[in-house]
Design a protein around this nucleic acid. Sequence first.
DNA 1: GACTTTTACTGACATAGTGTCAGAATTTAC
DNA 2: GTAAATTCTGACACTATGTCAGTAAAAGTC
Lengths: 228, 228
Amino acid sequence: MSVKVSASGIIVKPEPTKIGRLEITRADIMNTAFRFLWSHPFREMTVNKLMDQTSVSRSSFYNYFSDTHELIESLLEILESDILQGANPWLTDDGDPVALLHQSLTAEVHVCYRCGPFLKAITDAAGTDARLEAGWYGMLGRFDDAVRERVIADQALGLIESFDPRSVATALNQVDASMYVRAFGQRPRSRPGPVLDAISRLWISSLYGERWVANRMSTLYREQGASR
Amino acid sequence: MSVKVSASGIIVKPEPTKIGRLEITRADIMNTAFRFLWSHPFREMTVNKLMDQTSVSRSSFYNYFSDTHELIESLLEILESDILQGANPWLTDDGDPVALLHQSLTAEVHVCYRCGPFLKAITDAAGTDARLEAGWYGMLGRFDDAVRERVIADQALGLIESFDPRSVATALNQVDASMYVRAFGQRPRSRPGPVLDAISRLWISSLYGERWVANRMSTLYREQGASR
DNA sequence: GACTTTTACTGACATAGTGTCAGAATTTAC
DNA sequence: GTAAATTCTGACACTATGTCAGTAAAAGTC
């Protein structure tokens, strides 16, 4: 894109490009969609309603995305890198695995709390479009693989007992994803503390054993009088 | 309808039915929908395609259901009782709780394996309609409550350590639901064995501790050589 | 069996949202 | 300043929805 070739085959220019109008409009649409999905479910997002909030017409939408699902897919890509970043400690670092796992889960909960309604929009949208569904499942699958790798490594070290790492990795990731959508997908969102505690309990007890769990609870349940 | 005349003017069929035309047509539509959803995702189910497979016209659909979501809601009610039935042992019976839990999970996996694509249809449809979504979350909520009750009871007996039972119950039910949809929702469906193993591990280790898990695995992982 | 009444069904219509395309408007190239 | 490109838009065709007035079938009545 930075170098264009004319019909005669001559290299035309290294493109001075002030700032692409194209990029601006595209970003405008994506931002508008993100804002819209913060306060409305995906099912209410029509191309019309969306483009009313931008400076360009409805038809222009189709210069950038073939439909609303492709738009969501673009937003999803951004999200994936955000989440993966926070999950890094346990997946890659050396040290106390239980501490690292808890650290990764904490980061993940934070990111997903912040974009809960958008996360829900993605899963809703995935159900209405085959391509997006494949993209969403693809992302989940990459998470599964990463977790599986780490489990295998810790099994080799004797830190985790021997069991089929694939299905357990999938199940653990599914807990996270479905809890985030359910707890943070609708406003008012649930508070992240209890969600983190529950998720941590499941991950730690099923991988490293329940003796590690108690240390990692953000709030001691008894202290707050067993309230909701 | 009791007498049909073909294009050539020949009387095609006499109708022997006496009663319940309404119930019959309603059941016809519901059966057709169920069959359709076995081989197509919900997003492809239009009123047109559906009613083409029945003996009545598209318009008639609206005599029975206000839209496709309400139809799904009716089918969901049937499903809920099916699942609850299998879950009964752990929820209500006396005896070894770990054994009963495993028994309940086994039954649940079986039911959900059998109607996997339909389960996926429900969750897809829930994302596209507020009322159905409320119904689906309502059902999940009732499961959460039942599990929570049982956890509280076992906590009182000292069988389960003291922690917030609500969020853990929700998380555990979410594992089940999301795994069933993911593993059994698309054909070819995953085999139920590994799914049951993974789910059992999460439930048992997070509630009763990992020392109980090994006994309950349907297949000993080492024996099958850590394949895939 | 001929009648009215009730019940179940249907075709035709209005509406909403989608995606396309030819051409207008705007920016960039020279 | 004009040509070429890029970007945008109104108008159109199409699909699916849900409604409704009217038709057909069944049940009730004598």
